[in-house]
């Protein structure tokens, strides 16, 4: 396949950026999107140009490092991560636009690389169970009903890639935040910190400059792990419940 790529190039956080056009040829339909970019980068290096910077690591759809907006869709036309998107979903001769995640809370570092450390701070605000190493009770001491365990798992699957933020017209991080809130709220282990967790995480989410949720559902349509819209609703309910209970936070 031969393709025309229009890729956002931006030398650094404070520099101006622009869409830049590249032609690539000899692309196999079995290549992943990132392997296609590897091919471009190998060409660029051989020509003495700087390759396109993009985050990637596991390349099997689980680490959440990769992510770019491809033809206006976060992670491209398939509901998966960019590394698991294959070129067979494009046609020969196509022009493909590639842009970084766009959000105030995700400033561009270089080219397609953005800074998602805001997500880490949201987790640090309460996305955990406080349990000192070695102090845990016997694992079977607290049974967890299978449906609750399944709900917890479904939400714990979030890989923190940020596609939800990239796709949301408001750059909202509600789906990311709610996935962790719901994961831990579903389990008895998460109960003691249930109220402080949701209040602190939502507070940090807002402080980081993400927008609010307008229930467009765009986040769930791009989420590679299929975190459902009900996750956000449940977090809203948890937030209201915690506020009603006095709104104490740490």
């Amino acid at each position: 396949m031969n393709l025309t790529l229009r890729i956002w190039r931006q030398p650094g956080p404070d520099s101006e950026g622009a869409m830049t056009t590249y032609e690539v040829s000899g692309i196999s339909p079995d290549m992943s999107f990132l392997e296609m970019l590897d091919t471009l980068n190998e060409d660029l290096i051989e020509r003495g140009d700087e390759p396109v910077a993009f985050d990637h690591d596991c390349r099997e759809g689980i680490c959440g490092a990769c992510g770019m907006v491809i033809n206006g869709d976060a992670h491209g036309p398939e509901r998966t991560t960019t590394c698991q998107l294959h070129m067979r979903h494009f046609t020969d001769g196509e022009t493909i636009d590639v842009e970084p995640w766009r959000a105030a809370a995700f400033p561009v570092v270089k080219d397609l690389v953005v800074d998602r450390s805001a997500f880490d701070r949201i987790i640090g605000a309460g996305g955990y169970v406080t349990v000192a190493t070695g102090s845990a009770p016997e694992a079977h001491a607290t049974p967890v009903a299978k449906p609750a365990a399944d709900t917890a798992f479904e939400h714990a699957e979030c890989i923190g890639c940020g596609a939800c933020v990239a796709a949301c017209p408001n750059g909202s991080a509600m789906l990311f935040t709610s996935a962790k809130v719901v994961h831990l709220a579903s389990l008895p282990q998460g109960a003691p910190e249930r109220e402080t967790r949701v209040l602190d995480m939502v507070g940090t989410m807002d402080d980081e400059g993400f927008g609010g949720c307008t229930n467009t559902g765009m986040c769930t349509t791009v989420c590679p792990k299929g975190i459902p819209m009900s996750s956000i609703t449940t977090m809203n309910r948890e937030f209201l419940r915690a506020t009603r209970k006095g709104g104490g936070s740490r």
Binding site: D73, D97, G171, G209
Partner: peptide
Amino acid sequence: RDLAARPVKYAHRKPRASYAT
């Protein structure tokens, strides 16, 4: 807040994303 949360717009626009908003 919402407008400030996306200071730079996408070059490749998808109209459906923002319809409801």
